[in-house]
Amino acid sequence: MTAPTASTAPAPPADPAALAVRDLRVTFDGFTAVDGVDLDVAPGDLRFLIGPNGAGKTTLVDAVTGLAPATGSVRFAGRELLGRPVHRIARLGIGRTFQTATVFEQLTVLQNLDIAAGAGRSVTTLLRRRRHLPEAVAAALETTALTAHRDRLAGTLAHGRKQWLEIGMLLVQDVRLLLLDEPVAGMSHPEREATGELLHRIAADRTVVVIEHDMDFLRSFARSVTVLHAGRVLSEGTVEQVRADPRVQEVYLGEPALTAPAGGEA
């Protein structure tokens, strides 16, 4: 199952944007960070992935996007992802953001978005200047309220705006599966609300997985929740179902601090 898959393998007629993870395992020098995770996310879902620090949430996203070597199976729209290089997985319509916003600091907001929109460009297009704004870029500038900042260097943006820029980059990239690693960390309350609403709109015709710690944010915007603990799925369901699960209360929700110490390192 873990052997590199030929990129020419025909796509079986499957759900267009369904993510199916089976028995996923990621091991770092003998330490198992993701320990046999099964996860199904349906198209149109807005899935929240929660769990204490060190539960393996980021590592799970790393494995799906090709950054961390893993065993098991990750299928998206019927195609196996494990074994493919990062940029090929991205070209299948999978995008992600990072726990600390990662944008091209030396380029303007507009250039950042334009690059995100351009992975399929021909050599002749690449060698020319940008004559006019691609429609998707203009739309993403509007959606993320960055139109007024389009000519600023991304490195000079405030923290929250960088995160929006990252989301905007995923929009122009036209991905069908978005994996967002703590997208509202460090944002003010109104910024969180705005981001949550943006995510809801995005999820209407895409599949969105959000890693998040903030319980208020989760209650307001999650359609479904998966709780990860020590590299395993502890519980899954609606927000109410998960909150009522005694195992979840034990390891996570019952504790006053949401950033409980890692269980995985024990």
């Binding site: 996007t65 950054l67 290089p85 990062v86 940029h87 991205a90 070209r91 995008g95 992600r96 990072f98 990662t102 944008v103 091209f104 600091e105 030396q106 380029l107 250039q111 950042n112 334009d114 690059i115 995100a116 351009g118 992975a119 399929g120 460009r121 297009t125 690449l126 060698l127 020319r128 200047r129 940008r130 980059m169 990239q173």
Partner: peptide
Amino acid sequence: SRYGELLVAVRDSEERVRFLG
């Protein structure tokens, strides 16, 4: 050119460029 912008992006964050395809 757009290539020039892409080259700067690769210089600044090679990993990030990969995730854009």
